[in-house]
């Protein structure tokens, strides 16, 4: 008998509270594995957001902050600037990062803070009960846009990875997805790269992870995965958006992953 699959040291054994079919658990696992594999767990400080992943501080097996809504990049700035040897990452949802925390994320990226941001985009406010997010798709129905998102009324969904990649400051910026095993394997490789850039003290790193919300989308987990692939990926193209080696804007959007 031998073990073929075990808990990652990067996560605590505590069962998560996430809904069936939600990919937060998968993304936690990927981040946890990356932290373990890179051997930095004992010098990592994570910052949990407000939203569905508010309890992430209980799941990541490293020192953790709980942030106020949207401010994780500011807290990360304070932590990293104060103890530069720490590996500091934020884990944020789309309401947290792309709405209330827009100022903090853009400026942390623009200052080139040597932190890693894991941005989970599921196109909706999950914890508060399925309200419209800045990332909600055109015509997508939510509890606060029951007739579907009217882009003439509230504008188009914000593409955060592209926004960050557009800044002149060198950074590693990518968008990946968590809706099927192939993309999950790619996503983990990209996350690992993001943390490596921080470990080497190179630049700010930002990984947007497309994620499903079967509960608030009103779909089964399988339908949700299909919906993400069909509706979200064409609007939110996957790939490396920017690397510190390339000048801003010179790198074409690349759907090949790493």
């Amino acid at each position: 008998m031998y073990k073929t699959f075990a808990y990652t040291q990067g996560l605590t054994p505590k069962p998560t509270h996430y809904c069936p079919g939600c990919t937060h658990g998968t993304i936690h696992r990927m981040v946890g594995e990356v932290i373990e594999e890179l051997g930095v767990r004992e010098r990592t400080v994570g910052i949990a957001p407000v939203g569905c992943s508010v309890l992430a501080y209980e799941y990541f097996n490293c020192d953790m902050f709980e942030a106020s809504h949207g401010r994780a990049p500011a807290i990360a700035t304070g932590a990293k600037r104060s103890r530069p040897n720490l590996i500091v990452f934020t884990y944020q949802g789309d309401g947290d990062l792309a709405s209330i925390g827009m100022g903090e994320i853009i400026h942390a990226a623009n200052r080139g803070e040597k932190i890693t941001v894991v941005f989970v985009n599921n196109a909706i406010y999950g914890m508060t009960g399925g309200q419209m997010a800045p990332t909600t798709m055109p015509n997508q129905r939510t509890t606060t846009c029951p007739a579907g998102r009217d882009v003439a009324e509230v504008g188009y969904p914000v593409r955060m990875a592209e926004q960050i990649a557009d800044l002149r400051t060198p950074a590693f910026v990518a968008r990946v997805s968590s809706h099927n095993p192939k993309e999950i394997i790619r996503a983990k490789a990209v996350l690992k790269k993001a943390f490596q850039y921080q470990i080497e003290n190179t630049c700010f790193s930002f990984v947007e992870v497309l994620s499903t919300c079967p509960t608030n989308w009103g779909l089964s987990p399988l339908e949700a995965s299909n919906w993400l692939e069909r509706e979200m990926i064409p609007y939110y193209p996957l790939g490396i958006k920017k690397t510190p080696e390339a000048e801003s804007g010179q790198q074409e959007h690349n759907s090949e992953g790493v």
């Binding site: 942030a67 500011a74 304070g78 600037r81 104060s82």
Partner: peptide, 14 residues
């Protein structure tokens, strides 16, 4: 707003 959260982060790491 950000400054108050930066000092939260800084004090939090001692």
């Amino acid at each position: 707003v950000a400054a108050s959260n930066m000092i939260y982060g800084s004090a939090g790491v001692g």
